[in-house]
């Protein structure tokens, strides 16, 4: 759902980019662009679990699931439809 993606984007912008979306695309790597660090990933995971009522396993903390808006969106949609 597009609304889910927008919630993720808003969380990233508000919490890690001081409210400015400058240069953030759906494909931007959070790590390569220095947007999120170790603790930021944990905050993102907490947010996703609470906001979408999902449980994220430790094994799922990989860039393929979490390192861009598109990756996060695909990941949560798969979780929600599972």
């Amino acid at each position: 759902m597009a609304a889910h993606k927008e919630k993720v984007r808003a969380f990233i912008i508000d919490n890690f980019m001081f409210g400015s979306a400058d240069g953030l695309t759906d494909e931007t790597s959070f790590l390569d662009e220095g947007i999120i660090d170790s603790t930021g990933i944990l905050e993102l995971v907490d947010f996703l679990e609470q906001e979408f009522g999902i449980q994220i396993e430790d094994e799922e903390l990989v860039p393929e699931n979490l390192d861009s808006i598109t990756n996060v969106h695909t990941f949560i949609e798969n979780k929600l439809s599972a």
């Binding site: 790590l31 999120i36 170790s38 990933i41 430790d58 990989v62 860039p63 390192d67």
Partner: peptide, 12 residues
């Protein structure tokens, strides 16, 4: 491995 922010990727 420069992706320690994703600990599962490092352990893998």
């Amino acid at each position: 491995n420069n992706k320690f922010a994703y600990p599962a990727a490092v352990v893998q």
